[in-house]
């Protein structure tokens, strides 16, 4: 993440807002027609086709029988169409080539992404409210510090966090032992000798916070002052105000950032690789895909089906929630 990202994020947030509600103030429609030429349209169409073909190739290959997919170009399928869902069946539930299948990793990705989107956003909203509406001497300094923390790249935190989780800092016990010490629950969340989702949730939460606090602070601080003053006069506590006013009013702002954060975690490889290892218990689908790309990369029919399963979730989000998606993605595009 980067400091610039915050400034950028604001600029981009504005850009996104404009994109979401396009106004054509730039040029009048008469002007527009004057300037459009068949060449321009042709160029755009060619580029659009170029941009779409690689993904189409993936989808087509994943639907072809093994023999055809591995020995002829996917475009030949249009001349001689033979399609099958066998690849998906084998990839999902496992088969001769890929034992076990991708399904557990697909589930892992959900189990990682949903809490890793909800928890940091909630914590960030709380912090944003405190910084904006319960000010004290150090509020501005703290806000600036959080703003500045976005310069720290993810890479700088990986080794120390791994140590915190598994070995402990400054001679203190590691997080793993602390979690496991909790009766009953501890062993469920972090099985002895096994891997846990806990490090992934925590790491993603930590890495999401600076940008989330910054963006939500921008939003929360612009809520009408009268609202909070009226509530305070009526004797409402900060806690009641947060629950009854801030939370419901922030839903639209949260929605776009939540989608971005969900997809960021879903698409992440670095954090998953570092904190999950490659185990079927917790590794996300991206880690699994990058592993089988090395091992079964030659089985084009399977690797393409696997990849399509991994990208279908972001694609559904993209096409169904495009407006929110664009806003969130642009605001957060500099994360990491």
């Amino acid at each position: 993440m980067s400091v610039e990202s915050s400034e950028t994020a604001v600029a981009l947030e504005k850009a996104a807002a404009k994109t979401a509600a396009p106004d054509h103030s730039g040029m009048s429609s008469a002007l527009r027609r004057n300037l459009s030429s068949p060449w321009a349209s042709a160029f755009v169409i060619i580029l659009t086709v170029l941009w779409t073909i690689p993904t189409l190739g993936l989808l087509v290959t994943s639907l072809r029988p093994a023999e055809e997919a591995n020995n002829s170009g996917w475009w030949t399928a249009f001349a001689d169409p033979v399609f099958t869902l066998d690849n998906y069946q084998e990839v999902i539930s496992g088969g001769d080539t890929i034992p076990g299948g991708i399904l557990p990793y697909f589930i892992n990705s959900f189990v990682i992404s949903i809490p890793a989107a909800m928890i940091p956003l909630t914590l960030a909203l709380m912090a944003a409210y405190a910084l904006a509406w319960v000010p004290f001497r150090w509020s501005n300094a703290i806000f600036l510090l959080i703003f500045a923390l976005q310069v720290v790249p993810l890479q700088m935190a990986l080794l120390p966090l791994l140590q915190l989780f598994n070995l402990g800092w400054f001679g203190l016990p590691p997080l793993r032992d602390l979690v496991q010490a909790v009766p009953v629950l501890g062993d469920w969340i972090w099985p002895t000798g096994g891997t846990s989702f806990m490090p992934l949730w925590i790491a993603h939460t930590m890495f999401a916070l600076p940008l989330a606090i910054f963006l939500l602070h921008n939003f929360v601080s612009q809520l009408p002052r009268d609202l909070f003053e009226a509530a305070r006069v009526d004797g409402a506590s900060h806690f009641l105000i947060f629950r009854k006013l801030v939370l419901p009013l922030s839903v639209p702002a949260i929605a776009s950032f939540a989608i971005f954060q969900f997809l960021w975690v879903w698409n992440d490889l670095l954090v998953g690789l570092t904190f999950a290892g490659g185990t079927v218990d917790v590794a996300p689908i991206t880690v699994y895909l990058s592993n089988i790309k090395g091992t079964y990369g030659a089985s084009l029919h399977l690797i393409t089906a696997g990849a399509f399963i991994a990208i279908v979730v972001p694609l559904i989000v993209f096409f169904s929630l495009q407006r929110f998606f664009v806003r969130g993605l642009l605001a957060g595009s500099v994360k990491g």
Binding site: W51, G57, T61, L269, S290, T304, A307, L315, V317, L329
Partner: peptide, 18 residues
């Protein structure tokens, strides 16, 4: 044209690997 932004780098790499 914006769609690839939704796809993970891993997914994009497999798409282009093909």
């Amino acid at each position: 044209i914006f769609m690839p932004m939704a796809i993970s780098f891993v997914g994009a790499s497999i798409i282009w690997g093909l």
